[in-house]
């Protein structure tokens, strides 16, 4: 097990390096360069040249990259161009807010998706199965930004049940209850599509397992249905389900970006969007790096959990998944 973990960790190193290169290159994809943004439209070319030298932008890219990486490794993402604050100070608290939203949504999505999928598989082709599979098919194709607006329309504007924007009330807000009230709608929106996809996948992998011969043998031996489902089927269906849950987290994080914008949730997606609108490259880079790091960590955890559940993976010691 330890060997597996170490093996996976080693494969992560080059990925981390690559991710940093991609994020570094991002800044150079932008039209014009930073000096245009910093000095404004009326600056002369000479002024820009001075600034370029001061920032080290005249040096070759690899040199710039190493310099940049040095700073990043010390947690220094540079100053936000839009509001002149250290990027790291700006994005870390936002990251926490995003983590809250993402984790709660993931919990919603996995629990609901898992049970709907299990019930649908246990009673395949029943009324419940057909209804839930149609609903999940539609939800799985629903854009999160549109679903969010519909939910706002119903729950906030028409029925006035829950707040539509922000994380706490402006006037005597704060406290866990207030945050939870603000969390419900964005979390539901974020969770909808992943829950739907998880439900479909859980159903499919359960049905696959249930058609195996050893399940037929178990049934022939007279083992009760519930026990077969729990002991024989679920246990074997778990590794693919965990993999799917991990993959869905990427989709979920993507959804979070949209949902934060819609619900004005003060998270990293919202910050990223504001950074994009303000052409604030350091903020964009910082936010992207943080989300990518979180995503890599999650994928790593999924692999470890899977190795724990499935000896076949564990014993292939650290060989890449696929």
């Amino acid at each position: 097990m330890l060997r597996f973990i170490v093996g996976r960790l080693i494969t992560i190193l080059p990925v981390l390096f690559g991710v940093s290169v991609v994020i570094f290159i991002l800044a150079h994809l932008a039209p014009g360069d930073v000096t245009t943004v910093l000095t404004g439209p009326f600056a002369t070319e000479a002024t820009r040249e001075v600034l370029r030298q001061a920032l080290g932008l005249d040096r070759p890219l690899p040199v710039q990259y190493i310099k940049w990486l040095e700073h990043i490794l010390q947690g220094d993402f540079g100053k936000s161009i839009a509001n002149r604050r250290e990027v790291i100070e700006l994005i870390l608290p936002k990251f926490l807010n995003t983590a809250i939203l993402a984790l709660v949504s993931a919990f919603f999505a996995y629990v609901v998706g898992f049970f709907v999928g299990m019930f649908a598989a246990a009673r395949a082709h029943s009324f419940f199965d057909r209804i839930s599979m149609s609903v999940t098919l539609i939800l799985g194709n629903t854009p999160p930004y549109w679903l969010g607006l519909l939910i706002v329309l119903l729950f906030s504007l028409n029925w006035r049940l829950l707040p539509a924007t922000g994380m706490v009330n402006m006037i005597d807000g704060g406290g866990p209850v207030d945050v939870i009230r603000h969390l419900v709608l964005p979390a539901l929106t974020t969770a909808a599509a992943p829950a739907a996809i998880v439900a479909r996948m859980v159903r499919a992998s359960m049905l696959e397992i249930l058609s195996q011969n050893y399940v037929k043998v178990a049934r022939a031996k007279g083992i009760p249905r519930r026990k077969i489902l729990r002991r024989h089927a679920l246990r074997n269906a778990l590794p693919p389900i965990v993999t799917i849950c991990g993959l869905q987290l990427g989709y979920l994080l993507g959804g979070v970006l949209f949902v934060e914008v819609i619900f004005a949730w003060p998270g990293i997606g919202n910050q990223l969007w504001q950074g994009i609108i303000a052409r604030d490259i350091p903020t964009i880079q910082g936010a992207t790096l943080l989300v990518a790091l979180a995503f890599i960590f999650v994928n790593f955890s999924v692999d470890v959990i899977n190795a724990f559940l499935d000896p076949k993976i564990r014993l292939s010691e650290g060989v890449r998944r696929q």
């Binding site: 039209p31 989709y251 994080l253 992207t288 989300v291």
Partner: peptide, 15 residues
């Protein structure tokens, strides 16, 4: 290593 939507948003965002 990047969520698909994040990568797309960021690439489109800086250009």
């Amino acid at each position: 290593a990047f969520p698909l939507v994040l990568l797309a948003i960021v690439i489109a965002g800086v250009m």
